[in-house]
Simulated assay, not measured.
Amino acid sequence: MTIPTPQSVFPRSADLPPVDTHFHVFPAHQSTPGARYTPAYAAPLQAWQTAAAAVGLRHGVLVQTSFMGTDNRLLLAQLAQHPDTLRGVAVVSPDASLPALQALHAQGVRGIRLNLAGQSHDMAPWAAASPLWDALLALGWHVELHTDRGALAPVLAALPQAVPVVVDHFGKPERASLHDAGIAAVLQRSRQAGAATVHVKLSAAYRLAPAMDATALAQLWLQELGPQALLWGSDWPCTNHEDSANYPALYAALAGWLGPENTETLEAIRCTTPWRLYWGIPQPA
């Protein structure tokens, strides 16, 4: 079966532009019933484009917000207008079918988000969602996980081992240590399922525990997983942390954590790894 893909002109693998793998757009004063947050302001795509352009960035991965639930219409509308520069991560229900996901794939979606932060981490509905996981594997998609601090390990354990995973916001561990349950669970999954099936986003350090050293945590992930498993995202517009929405500072944070002299590592995380995951461009040999 051939999955339709939006038409794009791919750059050479040795000259891939950077990608913001985590940002949001949304209207003001809108959310789904029962949402834990309703924004008092709008975050339009043009505002992200303007902010990103200030650091020379045009490509991004638009991630569906928790408060819009499975209503992906705005996300899909933005992808339709910018098929060459945007990819998407949608939110779906556990009973989503392969034909439904194929339709999303044709519109530029490359994964689903399971956002459990601030709500129940009960995985029973998802643990039983075998058709959904089979559909993800057929499409080459991943599931993106956002959990509360220290709650990642049991969520990972409830997912089929073969399903590719992208862990949001450093994984939000309780400590930057190999003995942390969440970090240990990610590393174990990477060893057992294969390194290509596990990624961690270095994003939103302000969502970590107040005492957490983001630099130490970023360097731990780099040492244990390597740049081919790491992604950078701005988390723009930094909902509930809007005072951190300084885009140049968000972009520069990665070099601050890993060292500006590590140019090859920074290029891999900002460029080659996201292009491989979201656009299907293989990493250079």
Results as ranks from 00 to 15, higher is better:
I3D: 12
P6R: 04
P11K: 10
P11Y: 05
S13G: 06
P17W: 05
P18F: 06
P18L: 06
D20P: 12
T21N: 08
H22R: 12
F26Y: 12
P27R: 15
H29Q: 15
Q30I: 12
T32K: 05
A35Q: 05
Y37R: 09
A40D: 15
A40N: 14
P44G: 01
W48V: 11
A51G: 07
A52D: 03
A52L: 11
A54Q: 08
G56Q: 00
G56F: 02
G56K: 00
L57S: 04
H59G: 10
G60R: 09
T65S: 13
F67T: 11
M68D: 06
G69R: 02
T70W: 01
D71Q: 02
L74A: 12
L74F: 04
L79T: 01
A80H: 01
A80P: 00
Q81N: 02
H82C: 08
L98D: 06
L98Q: 10
L98H: 08
Q102H: 07
A103E: 09
L104Q: 04
H105N: 10
H105L: 08
Q107R: 03
I112C: 03
I112N: 03
L114P: 02
P125N: 13
A127W: 10
A129Q: 12
S130R: 15
P131R: 05
W133Q: 13
A135F: 10
L137E: 14
V143G: 08
E144D: 13
L145C: 07
L145V: 05
T147P: 01
R149E: 03
R149K: 09
G150H: 01
A151Y: 00
L156F: 01
A157K: 11
A162E: 09
V163I: 15
V166S: 00
P173N: 02
E174C: 00
R175E: 01
S177N: 05
S177M: 07
H179A: 15
D180A: 00
A181T: 05
I183Q: 03
S190H: 09
S190C: 15
Q192N: 11
A196H: 14
V198K: 07
H199A: 14
K201G: 02
L202N: 08
A204H: 04
A209P: 02
P210E: 05
A211C: 04
D213K: 06
D213N: 11
L217P: 04
Q219W: 08
Q219D: 12
Q219P: 06
Q223W: 08
Q223A: 15
P227S: 14
Q228W: 04
A229Q: 15
L230K: 02
L231R: 07
S234G: 11
D235L: 09
T239Y: 06
H241Q: 11
P248F: 02
P248E: 02
L250Q: 07
L250E: 04
L250F: 04
Y251R: 04
Y251P: 03
L254A: 09
A255W: 04
A255N: 04
T265Y: 06
L266M: 12
E267K: 14
E267I: 08
A268K: 10
A268G: 08
R270K: 13
C271N: 14
T273S: 13
P274C: 13
L277M: 15
L277E: 11
L277Y: 14
Y278A: 13
W279L: 15
I281C: 13
Q283D: 09
Q283F: 04
A285Q: 05
